[in-house]
Design a protein around this nucleic acid. Structure first.
Lengths: 209, 209
DNA sequence: GTAAAATCTTTTACCGAGTTAATGTTTTCC
DNA sequence: GGAAAACATTAACTCGGTAAAAGATTTTAC
């Protein structure tokens, strides 16, 4: 049933991702060409694009997981739990597991430094964020998600991104891992508290000018 | 003092922007090359990049204004007015002026269709949005803006983007201009109401699992 | 008005990401 | 073992973007 083939493919893919990540970390994303990566992995340039649609995906390999995690957390939540509480629980679980999405340490900071130094990587990260918003809105409100659902979804992802960025900033400013992660959780709670109110708070009438 | 030179430059720039916008609208952003634009404007390819750093900027020429408007609205606001009220006022003013940032009609919808059909244009729009967030955070909290300021700024821009996208959606789904703009304002009010509360609402403690 | 300096444009040549099509090589399955 | 399917490679190409040098135009100074 094609076992050797499959394992070879897994292997090549992993090798490419590893080799590329190492080279990007050492020299910066924009100072490494796809051809160099191909050569270092004993493969041709075309093959690289056969495995990764864009150069950026060589570095952002695991980032599609965001959508997966969200879907899981919302799908498997206990009866009666609100979506926002389910996501708050997801943050805790990922944080305990020391998953890079919810935990800052010297490794993740180094990783983000590479991203921050490359406009195209940053662009791709933004794109992935938007995909997550759309997926979350769908999860929250079904196939005909309206503007409010998208607004709530946007605020959740925005909170996550902002909290993460703040944690990185704290760490890079000489803060300890502990402080950085505390800052992360603090902002998450801030943002999520707001979202909790959004779903029920009525819009305020604009005042006449 | 270099008058002829200046006017010629303004002219060339405008010609490039016009020619490009027309071609993009007719054939789609990705189906027009920079060389074609250069030829149509009687100029060389290098000159195009002399005026516009990226191809995308040929279509998104006026989008840097977002930051300007924000700075203006916050800088010139009457004593005692909160930043969020100042921005709410800006929305009304732009809307009355029928400015494309705050008003949906068949023209703006056509414009967004071009954007939506091109990944690179969408990416650039996202980038401009992030720049606006950073500028707004700076305006709200000064040079050492913290995570909360960035969160609030992010929510404001997010609200704007989401409201606008929703208005477009309403219009394209057969809604009238009136309905589309009503949807825009409704979501703006929703999001801004949330932001008003954020600045004062305390974060909720997480419940023990 | 003219010459020199400053500024803008063009030409040419190049790089790197990404695509396409044809050819070559492995793996699979019978 | 051999045909068919799956994958990799080569080669040639497109397009956005950059760099350097040469050419043209405008400005400034005299």
């Amino acid at each position: 049933m094609g076992e050797l083939r499959e394992s070879k493919k897994r292997d090549t893919r992993q090798r490419l991702s590893n080799v590329a990540t190492e080279m990007f970390s050492a020299r910066g994303f924009d100072r490494v060409t796809v051809e160099e990566i191909a050569a270092a992995a004993n493969v041709s340039k075309v093959t690289v694009f056969n495995y990764f649609a864009r150069k950026e995906d060589l570095f952002l390999d695991r980032e599609g997981d965001v959508k997966l995690f969200i879907r899981e957390a919302l799908g498997e939540r206990p009866k009666g739990q609100s979506p926002i509480d389910a996501l708050r629980g997801l943050v805790d679980r990922l944080s305990e597991r020391k998953h890079p999405f919810a935990r800052v340490d010297s490794q993740t900071v180094a990783w983000w430094r590479v991203v921050g130094a490359s406009p195209s990587l940053e662009a791709r990260v933004r794109e992935i964020g938007d995909e997550a918003v759309e997926a979350l809105a769908l999860e929250l409100a079904g196939p005909k998600a309206d503007g409010l659902a998208r607004l709530v979804a946007g605020m959740i992802i925005l909170t996550w991104r902002t909290a993460y960025a703040e944690a990185i900033r704290v760490f890079e400013h000489g803060g300890s891992v502990k402080k950085a992660n505390a800052a992360f959780i603090a902002l998450i709670d801030r943002g999520f508290a707001v979202v909790r109110q959004t779903a029920v708070s009525a819009p305020r009438r604009k005042e006449p000018r």
